[in-house]
Design a protein around this nucleic acid. Sequence first.
DNA 1: GCCAATACTCTCCAATGGGAAGTAGGCACC
DNA 2: GGTGCCTACTTCCCATTGGAGAGTATTGGC
Lengths: 126, 126
Amino acid sequence: MGKPPHTSYHSDPRVDALVDETIGRVADKWTLLVLEALEEAGEQRFSAIGRAVPGISQKMLTQTLRQMEREGLVTRTVHAEVPPRVEYRLTDLGHDLAEAFCGVWHWAERNIEKIEAARAAFDARK
Amino acid sequence: MGKPPHTSYHSDPRVDALVDETIGRVADKWTLLVLEALEEAGEQRFSAIGRAVPGISQKMLTQTLRQMEREGLVTRTVHAEVPPRVEYRLTDLGHDLAEAFCGVWHWAERNIEKIEAARAAFDARK
DNA sequence: GCCAATACTCTCCAATGGGAAGTAGGCACC
DNA sequence: GGTGCCTACTTCCCATTGGAGAGTATTGGC
């Protein structure tokens, strides 16, 4: 659909496309988890974020942080020391996004049991 | 981090892990976009969803819908007709998730310009 | 001189995703 | 009565992505 009339506040397909594209870049697992970690702990250094997001590889952490920096979600501050220290902090934009995702986080918390049940049922049926 | 004391309502690492895992399965580009499409248009058939989510391949649409069905986000109704007709509809759980993501959608709408500006600045700098 | 610490960066391999073609199954048309 | 046609998949092949793990740059401390 090019999105039907419906009760939307806009219907500009270019805006829709842009929003979709933005969502596509922002709504992936690692971005969301890193966002969460930074929102909870404030300014953090590279390796601390890595510990806060279990399962992420260094490569993906670097990549995710770079992308987030590019989108204006985090700032990156390099301290010229040895050993090196690089700190990441959410921008206002990043903070707003974290708050927007907060609802999803709560949804997940609230519904873990329902989801597990749905999966068990689905797996049993198939 | 095992998540510091902080003002959280829980601190059970197993719950955290489960939530992370759930987020990981639910927070991907295609799931979010399909969720959006179904939330906007109500019950929809396979190919209509495909048209509503520009860029998705049939394979990913099938896969995403199956996974969403498994998580209990959508119901799948097959009408034994020719040509076949399969309709997908959000469950209450799926509807709640769509509402939770609503904030993200609005955030994207509100901040497209800031994001574009941040990207332009980043690309110019580097 | 050598090691430790940190934030990457690179290389190799496995998994994922897109594109296009194939499948099932019954009805309409010639 | 064979030939398409319609729709929701499914399969195959190939390019891209992601993970594991090793390598790199820097410099103060032993």
